[in-house]
Nucleic acid binder design. Structure first.
Lengths: 248, 248
DNA sequence: CCGAAACTTCGGTGCGCGCCGAAGCGAACG
DNA sequence: CGTTCGCTTCGGCGCGCACCGAAGTTTCGG
């Protein structure tokens, strides 16, 4: 008796997989999390409108997601801003989404079509870059032996030097997350660079004026300077670098 | 080549996150998947008994899991064997489980306590080793510079040579999965070696008589030869190598 | 050839929960 | 200082689904 019960309780902690999956098992909550994958903070009303439910319904969902640790909230006046809890959460949702079946969703309007085309070209994927441009960057880095995939994705010594030359410090050892990770692109169905290095690359691109966020969306627009840099550094062709044509 | 075709029908495929999460959002189905993480094939009746539901209920769950692509089934006579669809599925479930909250589950019996202690010591985690021993192996390989974590987990050249010396071929380039992956241990809350290399290591241990499965469970028992090998090759101490004492 | 075992199908029951609208509350704005 | 806006709480409705037991089908064993 006393051998087991006295000091530590005889209960064993096992992962409550169903509880976590249950948070994402609802269409509305899943759409909220996918929207938040852009890495920005949304208000409750924005998410309600985006998912097409009443504000009261959105409130309930957000409460559950915050209580479950998937979302972090920040109150500012009468606004409730909500964002993903952190990179680990984003990577988990990405991983799940990349294994999920595809579902056809109708394009609602011409404006919608434009937005989707811009998103397919270049967008933020939580803290790194995704889309055609991101896949091209990843491919080019692999071709130039900056990235190696022989034993999982990893930077080569040349890759580390390349990043340093760009002014991107490779000191991410304190964050505890994988430095180089691959993220499956929904639009391209190809892998692109993620993890701490992917995040540092996007930060550098935004800071140095290579690219900019389009308003409050997750669309990333390349600047002329960014096109020059990507052409020089990685040899990306113009058909990748130029923005998508409307005429299509 | 031609990038995204712009003349295709105006519907866009987006990942149906909710559908996939819904498969794991039920306690019974989640318990089935966690049980199947041992990498073996279970019969429907075994899973029903393990999860404490009627056989008819288990049938329904297994149908949904197979239809959703998470499980693969194999019919043999009057038995329906079911197993995880593949390493990618196992890794997705592991990833999800490692982010899930912990839930206290009561220890039902003394036999249960023994089983849990053995599981915490060494067990199969789909196709690789988990538990105290697995974490110790991973730590020792890191200390001896066989594994490097500077830019995500990866084998060093010394690590590749070490594996070859053991007779483990490092030619896994055709499988398309990450060779070195880290898997968060539920019992240890520490990372251990997974991926193709982790799988090859467990296979080698079983083939060369270092360890053996205990009956039809996922418990792994080290042999004397295995203890000697791990002590010599990696310097693991006896308190890690020896089986857990009952009188703990 | 008969019984047992593994699995399946089929109704029926009950709980969980996603949804909404109405009403309340605090913050911001004129 | 009153109105508007963003968010919340509450009550109620209805669908979905997890569960079971009973009965049917196939397979294996004696």
């Amino acid at each position: 008796m006393s051998g087991v019960t006295s000091t530590s309780p005889p209960s064993v902690d096992s992962p409550d997989l169903a509880a976590l999956a249950g948070l994402l098992a609802d269409r509305t909550r899943a759409a909220m999390c996918l929207a938040l994958l852009d890495g920005r903070a949304w208000t409750a009303t924005e998410l309600a409108r985006h998912t097409g439910v009443a504000p009261s319904t959105a409130t309930g969902h957000l409460h559950r997601l915050v209580a479950g640790g998937l979302l972090a909230e920040e109150r500012q006046g009468r606004h409730r801003y909500v964002r993903l809890a952190g990179p680990a959460t984003a990577e988990m949702i990405e991983s799940l989404a990349s294994h999920a079946p595809l579902r056809a969703t109708p394009v609602r309007s011409l404006r919608d079509a434009h937005r989707r085309r811009a998103l397919a070209h270049a967008r933020s994927c939580y803290d790194h870059l995704a889309g055609t441009v991101a896949v091209a960057i990843t491919d080019a880095m692999t071709e130039r032996a900056l990235l190696a995939w022989d034993y999982g994705p990893g930077l080569t010594p040349a890759g580390r030097a390349w990043l340093r030359a760009l002014g991107i410090a490779d000191d991410h050892s304190g964050t505890g997350r994988a430095h180089v990770r691959s993220c499956l692109d929904w639009t391209e169905r190809r892998h692109h660079l993620a993890g701490a290095v992917g995040a540092a690359l996007l930060t550098h691109a935004l800071d140095s004026g290579w690219a900019a966020r389009r308003g409050t969306t997750r669309v990333i627009d390349l600047s002329d300077r960014g096109r020059v840099a990507l052409r020089e550094h990685l040899g990306l062709p113009d058909e990748v670098l130029l923005p998508p044509e409307d005429g299509g």
